[in-house]
Simulated scan of single mutants.
Amino acid sequence: MKNLLLLFTLLSVQVLSLNAFSQKVFTDGTIYYSIKVDAPDNNQQLANTFQGSTYTLYVKGKWRRIDMDLKMMKQQIYINTQDSTYTFLIETMGNKYMMRLNAEQLRKRPNPYRGITFTDTIGSKNIAGYPCKLAIAHLPNGTTFPVYYTTQLMPEGEYSADQMFTGLKGFPLEYQLTIQNLKMTITAEKIDLAPVPMSTFDIPRSGYREVNPDEFMQ
Protein backbone atom coordinates (compact mmCIF):
# COMPACT_ATOMS: atom_id res chain seq x y z
CA MET A 1 0.00 0.00 0.00
CA LYS A 2 2.87 2.40 0.70
CA ASN A 3 4.24 1.72 -2.78
CA LEU A 4 0.84 2.61 -4.23
CA LEU A 5 0.73 5.77 -2.13
CA LEU A 6 4.19 6.78 -3.33
CA LEU A 7 3.23 6.22 -6.95
CA PHE A 8 0.10 8.34 -6.61
CA THR A 9 2.21 11.00 -4.90
CA LEU A 10 4.57 11.07 -7.86
CA LEU A 11 1.66 11.24 -10.30
CA SER A 12 0.08 14.15 -8.54
CA VAL A 13 3.33 16.12 -8.27
CA GLN A 14 4.37 15.42 -11.85
CA VAL A 15 1.18 16.76 -13.39
CA LEU A 16 2.68 20.20 -12.74
CA SER A 17 6.05 19.62 -14.36
CA LEU A 18 5.47 21.46 -17.64
CA ASN A 19 6.85 24.48 -19.44
CA ALA A 20 4.75 27.61 -19.93
CA PHE A 21 4.18 28.25 -23.62
CA SER A 22 0.38 28.14 -23.83
CA GLN A 23 -2.23 30.60 -24.93
CA LYS A 24 -3.50 31.06 -21.38
CA VAL A 25 -1.18 31.09 -18.38
CA PHE A 26 -2.82 29.36 -15.42
CA THR A 27 -1.82 31.38 -12.37
CA ASP A 28 -4.90 31.18 -10.16
CA GLY A 29 -7.63 28.55 -10.05
CA THR A 30 -8.72 25.00 -9.31
CA ILE A 31 -8.92 21.81 -11.37
CA TYR A 32 -11.13 18.96 -10.17
CA TYR A 33 -10.15 15.49 -11.42
CA SER A 34 -11.94 12.16 -11.14
CA ILE A 35 -10.22 8.76 -11.02
CA LYS A 36 -11.97 5.81 -12.65
CA VAL A 37 -10.59 2.37 -11.80
CA ASP A 38 -10.95 -0.83 -13.84
CA ALA A 39 -9.45 -4.22 -13.02
CA PRO A 40 -9.47 -7.88 -14.12
CA ASP A 41 -12.42 -9.86 -12.80
CA ASN A 42 -10.26 -11.56 -10.18
CA ASN A 43 -9.17 -8.19 -8.79
CA GLN A 44 -12.49 -6.38 -8.88
CA GLN A 45 -12.76 -6.13 -5.12
CA LEU A 46 -9.56 -4.09 -4.97
CA ALA A 47 -10.74 -1.90 -7.82
CA ASN A 48 -14.03 -1.24 -6.02
CA THR A 49 -12.17 0.15 -3.01
CA PHE A 50 -10.86 2.99 -5.20
CA GLN A 51 -14.07 3.80 -7.05
CA GLY A 52 -15.06 7.43 -6.60
CA SER A 53 -11.48 8.53 -5.92
CA THR A 54 -10.69 12.15 -6.76
CA TYR A 55 -7.99 14.72 -6.61
CA THR A 56 -8.13 18.48 -6.73
CA LEU A 57 -5.36 20.81 -7.85
CA TYR A 58 -5.21 24.36 -6.45
CA VAL A 59 -2.88 26.93 -8.06
CA LYS A 60 -2.01 30.43 -6.92
CA GLY A 61 1.23 32.01 -8.12
CA LYS A 62 4.12 29.97 -6.74
CA TRP A 63 1.83 27.81 -4.61
CA ARG A 64 0.28 24.44 -5.46
CA ARG A 65 -1.91 22.22 -3.32
CA ILE A 66 -3.21 18.78 -4.27
CA ASP A 67 -5.98 17.05 -2.34
CA MET A 68 -6.22 13.37 -3.16
CA ASP A 69 -8.98 11.09 -1.84
CA LEU A 70 -8.22 7.43 -2.58
CA LYS A 71 -10.99 6.22 -0.23
CA MET A 72 -8.63 3.98 1.77
CA MET A 73 -6.27 6.91 2.25
CA LYS A 74 -6.27 10.66 1.86
CA GLN A 75 -3.44 13.05 1.34
CA GLN A 76 -2.76 16.71 0.83
CA ILE A 77 0.40 17.94 -0.89
CA TYR A 78 1.56 21.53 -0.41
CA ILE A 79 4.17 22.71 -2.92
CA ASN A 80 6.18 25.92 -2.96
CA THR A 81 7.53 26.10 -6.52
CA GLN A 82 9.87 28.95 -5.63
CA ASP A 83 12.07 26.92 -3.29
CA SER A 84 10.88 23.46 -4.49
CA THR A 85 9.69 22.24 -1.10
CA TYR A 86 6.89 19.76 -0.52
CA THR A 87 4.78 18.95 2.54
CA PHE A 88 2.64 15.79 2.50
CA LEU A 89 -0.23 15.22 4.92
CA ILE A 90 -1.35 11.58 4.83
CA GLU A 91 -4.33 9.94 6.53
CA THR A 92 -4.55 6.15 6.42
CA MET A 93 -5.88 3.43 8.74
CA GLY A 94 -6.74 6.00 11.39
CA ASN A 95 -3.25 7.49 11.43
CA LYS A 96 -2.16 10.97 10.32
CA TYR A 97 1.37 11.64 9.08
CA MET A 98 3.34 14.65 7.91
CA MET A 99 6.29 14.25 5.53
CA ARG A 100 8.55 16.92 4.07
CA LEU A 101 10.63 16.59 0.90
CA ASN A 102 12.61 18.83 -1.39
CA ALA A 103 13.10 18.50 -5.14
CA GLU A 104 16.52 16.90 -4.79
CA GLN A 105 15.13 14.15 -2.55
CA LEU A 106 12.44 13.37 -5.12
CA ARG A 107 14.96 13.30 -7.97
CA LYS A 108 17.06 10.69 -6.16
CA ARG A 109 14.17 8.23 -5.95
CA PRO A 110 13.48 5.59 -8.63
CA ASN A 111 11.12 6.91 -11.28
CA PRO A 112 9.78 4.86 -14.22
CA TYR A 113 8.87 8.06 -16.11
CA ARG A 114 12.39 9.37 -16.63
CA GLY A 115 13.10 9.34 -20.35
CA ILE A 116 9.43 9.46 -21.33
CA THR A 117 8.56 10.58 -24.88
CA PHE A 118 5.28 11.49 -26.60
CA THR A 119 3.92 10.90 -30.09
CA ASP A 120 0.92 12.87 -31.32
CA THR A 121 -1.72 10.71 -32.97
CA ILE A 122 -5.20 10.98 -34.45
CA GLY A 123 -7.80 11.69 -31.80
CA SER A 124 -9.39 14.59 -29.98
CA LYS A 125 -12.08 15.37 -27.44
CA ASN A 126 -13.42 18.20 -25.33
CA ILE A 127 -12.59 17.85 -21.64
CA ALA A 128 -13.96 20.25 -19.02
CA GLY A 129 -14.61 22.81 -21.77
CA TYR A 130 -11.14 22.64 -23.33
CA PRO A 131 -10.28 21.12 -26.73
CA CYS A 132 -7.74 18.35 -26.30
CA LYS A 133 -5.41 16.44 -28.61
CA LEU A 134 -4.34 12.81 -28.20
CA ALA A 135 -0.75 11.73 -27.65
CA ILE A 136 0.75 8.35 -26.83
CA ALA A 137 3.33 8.27 -24.04
CA HIS A 138 6.28 5.88 -24.44
CA LEU A 139 8.17 4.75 -21.33
CA PRO A 140 11.76 3.42 -21.39
CA ASN A 141 10.48 -0.03 -20.32
CA GLY A 142 8.38 -0.29 -23.50
CA THR A 143 4.94 0.40 -22.02
CA THR A 144 2.65 3.09 -23.39
CA PHE A 145 -0.40 5.03 -22.27
CA PRO A 146 -2.72 7.64 -23.85
CA VAL A 147 -2.80 11.30 -22.84
CA TYR A 148 -5.32 13.95 -23.89
CA TYR A 149 -3.82 17.40 -23.53
CA THR A 150 -4.83 21.01 -24.15
CA THR A 151 -2.57 23.82 -25.32
CA GLN A 152 -4.94 26.47 -23.97
CA LEU A 153 -4.11 26.03 -20.28
CA MET A 154 -0.68 25.86 -18.65
CA PRO A 155 0.88 26.60 -15.26
CA GLU A 156 2.97 29.72 -14.86
CA GLY A 157 6.73 29.29 -15.30
CA GLU A 158 8.68 26.05 -15.20
CA TYR A 159 8.16 23.44 -12.50
CA SER A 160 10.75 20.68 -12.19
CA ALA A 161 10.36 17.43 -10.26
CA ASP A 162 10.90 13.94 -11.76
CA GLN A 163 8.79 14.95 -14.72
CA MET A 164 6.12 12.57 -15.88
CA PHE A 165 4.97 14.85 -18.69
CA THR A 166 8.29 16.25 -19.89
CA GLY A 167 8.04 16.83 -23.63
CA LEU A 168 4.23 16.91 -23.77
CA LYS A 169 3.07 19.87 -25.88
CA GLY A 170 0.33 20.95 -23.46
CA PHE A 171 -1.41 20.37 -20.13
CA PRO A 172 -2.78 16.81 -19.52
CA LEU A 173 -6.50 16.75 -18.80
CA GLU A 174 -6.98 12.99 -19.19
CA TYR A 175 -4.60 10.04 -19.10
CA GLN A 176 -4.65 6.31 -18.37
CA LEU A 177 -2.19 4.36 -16.25
CA THR A 178 -1.90 0.73 -15.23
CA ILE A 179 -0.82 0.26 -11.62
CA GLN A 180 -0.69 -3.18 -10.01
CA ASN A 181 -3.13 -4.59 -12.62
CA LEU A 182 -5.50 -1.66 -12.08
CA LYS A 183 -6.25 0.58 -15.06
CA MET A 184 -6.83 4.11 -13.85
CA THR A 185 -8.32 6.89 -15.96
CA ILE A 186 -7.67 10.35 -14.54
CA THR A 187 -9.96 13.01 -16.03
CA ALA A 188 -10.45 16.71 -15.39
CA GLU A 189 -14.14 17.23 -14.63
CA LYS A 190 -14.16 20.95 -13.88
CA ILE A 191 -11.76 23.87 -14.23
CA ASP A 192 -12.51 26.90 -12.08
CA LEU A 193 -10.48 30.04 -12.78
CA ALA A 194 -11.83 31.95 -9.77
CA PRO A 195 -9.06 33.23 -7.43
CA VAL A 196 -8.01 30.75 -4.74
CA PRO A 197 -7.83 32.17 -1.18
CA MET A 198 -4.28 32.23 0.25
CA SER A 199 -5.60 30.40 3.32
CA THR A 200 -5.94 27.32 1.09
CA PHE A 201 -2.15 26.95 1.33
CA ASP A 202 -1.86 27.24 5.13
CA ILE A 203 -0.27 24.00 6.33
CA PRO A 204 -1.76 22.59 9.56
CA ARG A 205 0.66 22.85 12.49
CA SER A 206 -0.76 20.08 14.69
CA GLY A 207 -2.54 16.73 14.57
CA TYR A 208 0.05 14.97 12.38
CA ARG A 209 3.07 12.87 13.32
CA GLU A 210 6.10 13.88 11.26
CA VAL A 211 7.86 10.91 9.68
CA ASN A 212 11.12 10.30 7.84
CA PRO A 213 10.46 9.94 4.08
CA ASP A 214 13.04 7.16 3.69
CA GLU A 215 11.35 5.05 6.35
CA PHE A 216 7.77 5.78 5.32
CA MET A 217 8.22 5.19 1.59
CA GLN A 218 10.15 1.91 1.79
Results as ranks from 00 to 15, higher is better:
residue 146 P to E: 13
residue 140 P to R: 11
residue 152 Q to C: 00
residue 124 S to T: 05
residue 148 Y to W: 14
residue 126 N to D: 15
residue 142 G to M: 02
residue 130 Y to M: 00
residue 134 L to C: 08
residue 156 E to M: 08
residue 154 M to R: 00
residue 127 I to P: 04
residue 151 T to C: 10
residue 124 S to I: 01
residue 125 K to L: 01
residue 157 G to W: 05
residue 147 V to H: 07
residue 143 T to G: 00
residue 149 Y to E: 03
residue 137 A to V: 00
residue 129 G to T: 11
residue 131 P to S: 06
residue 157 G to H: 05
residue 131 P to D: 12
residue 135 A to G: 04
residue 146 P to N: 05
residue 151 T to Q: 13
residue 130 Y to A: 02
residue 127 I to N: 13
residue 148 Y to I: 03
residue 157 G to E: 11
residue 151 T to S: 09
residue 137 A to W: 03
residue 140 P to Q: 12
residue 154 M to V: 01
residue 132 C to W: 06
residue 137 A to K: 02
residue 134 L to D: 04
residue 123 G to N: 09
residue 154 M to G: 01
residue 124 S to L: 04
residue 124 S to C: 04
residue 155 P to C: 11
residue 150 T to W: 08
residue 124 S to D: 15
residue 125 K to C: 02
residue 133 K to H: 14
residue 130 Y to E: 04
residue 157 G to R: 15
residue 143 T to F: 01
residue 156 E to W: 12
residue 142 G to D: 09
residue 141 N to P: 01
residue 129 G to S: 03
residue 124 S to K: 10
residue 150 T to C: 04
residue 149 Y to F: 15
residue 131 P to A: 13
residue 125 K to F: 09
residue 147 V to M: 06
residue 133 K to Q: 15
residue 155 P to K: 03
residue 133 K to N: 14
residue 153 L to A: 02
residue 126 N to H: 10
residue 142 G to W: 11
residue 130 Y to G: 06
residue 146 P to Y: 12
residue 145 F to E: 10
residue 134 L to P: 00
residue 156 E to R: 14
residue 132 C to S: 09
residue 136 I to N: 09
residue 148 Y to G: 10
residue 145 F to N: 12
residue 150 T to A: 05
residue 128 A to T: 06
residue 132 C to F: 10
residue 123 G to C: 02
residue 128 A to L: 04
residue 127 I to F: 10
residue 148 Y to V: 03
residue 147 V to Y: 11
residue 129 G to V: 02
residue 133 K to E: 11
residue 151 T to I: 13
residue 131 P to W: 10
residue 133 K to F: 02
residue 148 Y to T: 10
residue 135 A to H: 06
residue 130 Y to P: 01
residue 150 T to V: 09
residue 128 A to W: 14
residue 130 Y to D: 08
residue 157 G to S: 13
residue 132 C to G: 09
